Simulated assay, not measured.
Amino acid sequence: MNRKILLSDLASKDYKETWDYQSQLLQKIVDVKIQNRRNDLQETTKNHFLFVEHPHVYTLGKSGDLSNLLLNENQLKEKNATFYKINRGGDITYHGPGQIVGYPILDLENFFTDIHKYLRLLEEMIILTIAEYGLKGIRSAGETGVWLDVGTPFARKICAMGIRSSRWVTMHGFALNANVNLGYFDHIIPCGIRGKAVTSMEVELGKKVDTEEVKQKILKHFKTLFEVEEFIVS
């Protein structure tokens, strides 16, 4: 099993370009797995972890409800935002500047073959990361992601998650609200969940956070939780 991960920070990159790139990486891994099975080979499959920040964009998961987007086409243009219906799980979410987006593209057969466990470990990675800033992140039953103050009238989401997998290869991932403009969430029903707010590390802490520092903490916890051998910067 290959537990080395190729790490790339794409900085600011268009959503559709990044989605296409993820799809290419996933397909290359899937192709190796198909050839291995067809020809009784044991070629090692690669794993990737992409960090990226997107320009303003709303994305709707394959089972999502378009009515959860509260803007029409002209209003999207006014907000300098784009919209895509995509192939991950989950409903609608927003990505934009100041948000830390991570896309692990892993062959889970190098780690474990359990999608539920995969999502729970991604949540744990974020819970451990924000705990280093004094924030108590928790799970909300039946709602993937990381929340604050669940079970109170002040429940609010700080990290959204949605993935897709094919032949145990993952794509898409998580979006942690670090210094993001939360006003853009006012134009959707986030994740299709009414009556719950969205927050950011900046709002909770009363100051901007160093996103590069947060990324390093994310990688530290990801490495431990997934028993990664090493990250290789690519």
Score class of each variant (00 low, 15 high):
residue 1 M to K: 11
residue 2 N to M: 05
residue 2 N to Q: 09
residue 8 S to G: 08
residue 8 S to M: 09
residue 9 D to H: 12
residue 9 D to P: 07
residue 10 L to V: 02
residue 15 Y to V: 03
residue 18 T to E: 03
residue 20 D to S: 15
residue 21 Y to M: 07
residue 23 S to Q: 06
residue 25 L to V: 07
residue 26 L to P: 05
residue 28 K to M: 13
residue 28 K to T: 08
residue 29 I to R: 11
residue 30 V to A: 13
residue 30 V to N: 14
residue 32 V to D: 10
residue 35 Q to N: 14
residue 39 N to M: 09
residue 48 H to K: 05
residue 50 L to A: 03
residue 55 P to V: 00
residue 56 H to G: 00
residue 57 V to L: 00
residue 58 Y to I: 01
residue 62 K to S: 03
residue 64 G to S: 06
residue 65 D to S: 14
residue 67 S to E: 10
residue 76 L to M: 11
residue 77 K to F: 03
residue 80 N to F: 05
residue 82 T to G: 06
residue 83 F to Q: 03
residue 83 F to S: 01
residue 85 K to G: 02
residue 86 I to N: 15
residue 87 N to Y: 11
residue 91 D to F: 13
residue 98 G to D: 00
residue 102 G to W: 15
residue 106 L to G: 07
residue 106 L to P: 05
residue 107 D to Y: 13
residue 109 E to R: 06
residue 110 N to G: 08
residue 111 F to V: 02
residue 113 T to D: 01
residue 115 I to C: 02
residue 120 R to V: 03
residue 120 R to Y: 05
residue 121 L to W: 14
residue 122 L to M: 07
residue 122 L to Y: 06
residue 123 E to I: 06
residue 123 E to V: 08
residue 135 L to S: 06
residue 138 I to S: 03
residue 139 R to D: 03
residue 140 S to Q: 12
residue 143 E to R: 15
residue 144 T to G: 15
residue 149 D to F: 02
residue 150 V to L: 06
residue 151 G to N: 02
residue 153 P to R: 10
residue 159 C to L: 04
residue 162 G to N: 06
residue 165 S to A: 09
residue 170 T to M: 11
residue 171 M to H: 15
residue 171 M to D: 14
residue 176 L to Q: 00
residue 179 N to A: 04
residue 181 N to R: 04
residue 185 F to C: 00
residue 185 F to P: 01
residue 189 I to K: 00
residue 192 G to L: 08
residue 196 K to I: 05
residue 197 A to H: 15
residue 197 A to Q: 12
residue 203 V to I: 15
residue 209 V to D: 07
residue 210 D to T: 01
residue 212 E to A: 12
residue 219 L to A: 10
residue 224 T to Q: 12
residue 224 T to P: 10
residue 225 L to G: 02
residue 230 E to P: 01
residue 231 F to R: 13
residue 234 S to D: 10
